[in-house]
Design a protein around this nucleic acid. Sequence first.
RNA 1: GGCGCUAUGGUGUAGUUGGUUAACACGCCGCCCUCUCAAGGCGGAGACCGCGGGUUCGAGCCCCGCUAGCGCUACCA
Length: 498
Amino acid sequence: MIRVRFAPSPTGYLHIGAARTALFNWLYARKVGGKFLLRIEDTDLQRSTDESTRSILEGLQWLGISDYDEEIVFQSANADKHRAAALRLIERGRAYRDFTPKEERSDRNVKQEIAERARHAATEGADARANPFRDLSPEESNRRAESGEPFAVRLKVAPEGRSHFEDAVYGAQERDYSEIEDLVLLRSDGHPLYNLSVVCDDIEMGITDVVRGQDHLTNTHKQILIYEALGARVPRFAHLPLILAPNKAKLSKRKHGEVVSLTTYRDRGFIPAAFRNFLALLGWSPAGEEREIFTLEELREKFSLEGIHRSPAVFNFAEGDARHWTDQKALWMNAEYVRTLPLAELLPMVRAELEAAGLWRDEYDGGRGEWLARTVDLIRQRFHTLKDFSAQGRAYFADDFEFDDAAVAKNLKKEPRLKELLPALAERIERTEDFGVETAEAALRAFADEADVKAGLLINASRTALTGQSVGPSMFDVFAAVGRERSARRLRDAARLV
RNA sequence: GGCGCUAUGGUGUAGUUGGUUAACACGCCGCCCUCUCAAGGCGGAGACCGCGGGUUCGAGCCCCGCUAGCGCUACCA
């Protein structure tokens, strides 16, 4: 039985890269009939917050992949077990106490420090296994520990040999032991460190396949060493290519802001299925397929680790450009979903949007339900996100909509005669029997003939009069959607803008 | 610094055991449709497949070297 897990650390909102990792884990588990588990890696007490945990949970729920097969595991609750494991390793001689006083390092320049230290070590030909405590006798080590002297616990990495594993995505991976330091398992304050915690928890949870970001690829060797020291079975690994920003840097919350947060997409009117679809195709492609719109079912059916790419994917967006605030393809895909989703599935989402905007009316639940469905179906053809229903679509649901200046200038102010034509057209509209798409068209065209003006003039003016905009659905559909009385009233009101 | 990973049009990708006009989608441009804008249909621009060698009758696909980008390298996760 395949068992996979998604293991985010709650140090901020859910990153889209993490969301994609979660999706792939879910897809894989569901494809092979395995278990999909969730573990919150909240071992960094300073940075972890309950709010982040909540946001992650919400995000997964929004994506529709929150049907975890077992209880959610909180890593912090297992700290005692991790400590015990480290102590066990000492007893077995696979780890040792390091009584070297802890080095304080500024959190900011770690990368630099690492490089500098490595350079020094290289020039001085330092031995990675030269720690004086590495071969301290067990008696001496125990005595010093008992006397209360603080110590870190380090894994005793063999001086010679090579670590290797077969990554399901990246293939055969090898690393010489000399490249791996005696990594710290337990801090001198007794706090278990990442590599130890992950391995212990994955063992405890019975994880068979670890599917995670490529940034963990090289560290995997260290974890394998821990598995072996613990005498546990090493799982299969599958690393996912990173998602990069347009400048090819790793997409980060710090540098790129809200575009990388999954909740942004929810808040800006994305349909979960659309974003999920987009995410699935970032770094993975189904074999022998040319289309790209897939339902969850289809994704699940077609998913395979073999289809995952090795090269990183660029998430294409332009900072500071409202039109390109996120990847164009994601936007396109969402629009695709907005206009093609079965209406019954879209309606609840539109309802939520209208409710949030204060545009929902109880009658939509009753007598006006059919009108709502028809209207939504009409206007969704041009919309990109759910937000459009309350913004561009406002005129259909409320009378206090705004007029676009350019539209007024182009369709109303250009022709002075509209001052008289609009009220006259309103009158004609009011007199129209059985008001609808066809009758509205007949009435308007007849009126245009009589007034000796082009129908287009009245059509465009009407569009702006009824919706405040210069673009939108076929005008006669708009008339029908807005209704006879409201249409007439808006035509008269608009005459004032001429 | 060391180690590792990657490299097909602006972006996401397809390219079967090496054969060739390098395919699809997004985006961009044009035309058609038309009451506007979309959608849709049609067409177009855009890639000497990172660079340099080699193997071969023939390489995006194989080999070597280089370069670039990224990742990891911590008593962070």
